[in-house]
C-alpha cells in the first residue's frame, strides 16, 4: 500500500449559538491519501485481491491515530472514501465497506454499530462531509452529526482518500428529544 500523505484534524467547538460549550466539543479526523490499488487496470471484475491487500492495513493505520488525536473516549464515529477522478467509487467502497477495515476502529473504541460513511469521487481539494453516529446505538439522535473535510491536494486522479472520524460527544448544544418520545 502506497501512502502519500497522512492528514490529522482536531476540531474544538468552544461556543455555539452564542453560549459556551463546556467541555469543548471535540471531533478528530485522520485521513490517508493512498494510491488507488486498481489504478491503470481497466475494469477489474473481482476486487477481492485488492481488498485483502489493503483494507485491514488501512484500518490498522487509521484507527489508533484517530483515537489518539481525539484524546477522549469515542462516542460517535464515521468513515470516508473519496476516489480520484480516474477511479470508480466502487474502489473506495471496496476498501471501507468490509469488516476487515472497520473492525480495527470498532474493536479499539469498544463500539458496536456500523460506521456511517461517505463515498464520493472528485478532484483534489474536493470538500466532503463525514457522517458520524453513536458508537453503540445508531438511533441516539444527539450524536447524529457531520464533519466537513478538505485536503488541498488530494485525491489525485489515481488516488483514494480513506478517512476515519471520531467525536467525543454529540452535537454542541444538542437538545432534541429522544427518538423514543415520538413513538
Amino acid at each position: 500500500m502506497n501512502v502519500r500523505k497522512i492528514v490529522t484534524i482536531v476540531d474544538e467547538t468552544l461556543t455555539e449559538g452564542g453560549r459556551p460549550v463546556e467541555p469543548a466539543a471535540r471531533v478528530a479526523v485522520v485521513a490517508a491519501v493512498i494510491e488507488n490499488p486498481w489504478a491503470g487496470q481497466g475494469f477489474v471484475e473481482n476486487l477481492t485481491a485488492g481488498i485483502d491487500a489493503n483494507a485491514s492495513d488501512l484500518g490498522a493505520l487509521l484507527a489508533p491515530r484517530v483515537i489518539e488525536a481525539l484524546g477522549a473516549p469515542v462516542e460517535a464515529y464515521g468513515k470516508a472514501a473519496i476516489v480520484g477522478l480516474d477511479g470508480e467509487i466502487e474502489h473506495g467502497s471496496a476498501l471501507i465497506h468490509t469488516l476487515k477495515f472497520g473492525n480495527h476502529f470498532r474493536d479499539a473504541a469498544a463500539a458496536k454499530t456500523l460506521l456511517p460513511a461517505v463515498e464520493k469521487r472528485g478532484p483534489a481539494g474536493i470538500v466532503f462531509d463525514i457522517p458520524l453516529k453513536h458508537f453503540t446505538d445508531a438511533t441516539i439522535r444527539s450524536h447524529h452529526q457531520t464533519f466537513e473535510v478538505r485536503i488541498p491536494d488530494a485525491p489525485h486522479p489515481g488516488e483514494i482518500v480513506i478517512a476515519l472520524a471520531a467525536a467525543a460527544q454529540g452535537r454542541p448544544q444538542q437538545r432534541l428529544a429522544a427518538l423514543s418520545t415520538e413513538q
Binding site: 501512502v3 502519500r4 500523505k5 497522512i6 492528514v7 484534524i9 476540531d11 452564542g18 459556551p20 460549550v21
Partner: peptide, 17 residues
C-alpha cells in the same frame, strides 16, 4: 473559554511519499 472564541481547528500533514 472567552465568549469571543468559537472554534479552534488543528490541521496536520505528514508527507510519506
Amino acid at each position: 473559554t472567552p465568549d469571543w472564541l468559537r472554534r479552534i481547528a488543528v490541521y496536520r500533514e505528514e508527507v510519506l511519499l
